[in-house]
């Protein structure tokens, strides 16, 4: 292998990029992907309109019942970004990732196109990496779609202006936007664990539907496990445990503890399941 490797080294970078570009193009041109993004964009609009209608009668008062930050939305449309991310992060976003990542290998196998992909002089590891990079790109795009849609809806329906942080401190709108961008970045990073998990499952089966369903099923299971107090010993290791830590960016001063744990956990999931996917994909028989 080492001999082949050295021969291959020169064109590798170019090829990898080309493969990645073609993968991203294929994924984002699919109707399925566009529909997923449309659904993601619809959530903030739905939330925003619902809050707008509700405020007509009497503002949403108790912060206990509704999703996070919802009481702030009527004061500042920017908070719709945070509310929407808090609403979509538990299910909508990871579900969309699960569909994309779960379909990555298994979908190709299902359609009988996997072996043709492998005919291209790119090697399996690189194909796998391109697939994972595509999923990562989708994490970012999905999050940004939610955030942008929320920002536009929030700006259209509610006043903008100084942003009140969780600690009661006010910051300028520009800085608020920066924090919103940082939060979108953190949310996108939070999804890397699911993406790696989905990719691994995708290498296990030849049925795209099975891989997607398993990924989403696992996601729901993990979310349920995370709410059972008796299981608090294992909860810090569930990939969804620190998801809401993005709210810590809105504290003054920022509370980094949980954010670091979240990123570390996502990196761990990415490495473990990414390498598991690699081990599986590079050693298995491709029959379809």
């Amino acid at each position: 292998m080492s001999q082949a490797e050295t021969v291959r080294r020169a064109p590798r970078r170019l090829w990898s990029l080309g493969l990645l570009r073609s993968e991203i193009g294929t994924t984002f041109r699919r109707w399925r992907t566009l529909a997923l993004l449309a659904v993601l964009a619809g959530v903030p609009i739905l939330v925003g309109v619902a809050i707008k209608i509700e405020t007509g009668s009497r503002g949403p008062d108790g912060g206990d019942g509704g999703p996070a930050f919802i009481s702030q939305v009527t004061n500042n449309g920017l908070f719709l970004v945070f509310t929407s991310l808090a609403v979509t992060l538990p299910f909508f976003l990871p579900m969309a990732i699960g569909v994309i990542a779960g379909d990555a290998i298994a979908g190709e196998a299902n359609a009988g196109t996997l072996r043709y992909l492998l005919v291209a002089p790119a090697g399996r590891a690189r194909l796998l990496f391109a697939k994972y990079a595509t999923s990562m790109a989708f994490c970012l795009v999905g999050t940004l779609v939610v955030a942008l849609s929320a920002l536009v809806t929030g700006a259209a329906l509610f006043p903008l202006g100084k942003v009140t942080l969780l600690s009661g401190t006010s910051i300028s709108f520009g800085e608020g936007l920066l924090r919103a961008l940082a939060i979108a970045g953190v949310v996108a990073l939070s999804l890397l664990g699911v993406a790696a998990l989905g990719l691994f499952i995708s290498t296990l089966t030849n049925s795209g539907i099975a891989a997607m369903a398993t990924t989403v099923g696992l996601l729901i299971t993990v979310q349920i496990l995370d709410t059972i107090p008796q299981l608090h010993a294992i909860q810090p290791y569930l990939f969804s445990h620190y998801w809401l830590s993005f709210a810590d960016l809105l504290r003054d001063p920022v509370y980094w503890d949980q954010l670091q744990k979240n990123i570390g956990l996502q990196a761990l999931y990415a490495v473990v399941f990414g390498s598991a996917a690699w081990a599986r994909f590079t050693t298995r028989d491709i029959t379809a």
């Binding site: 008062d61 912060g63 206990d64 930050f69 702030q72 942080l165 600690s167 009661g168 709210a247």
Partner: peptide, 20 residues
Amino acid sequence: TADYTLIHNGKDVWAYDSGS
């Protein structure tokens, strides 16, 4: 996803609950 802040400064004591 909320902060409960208590600030004592001189003769003022503020309690701020971001949730509500």
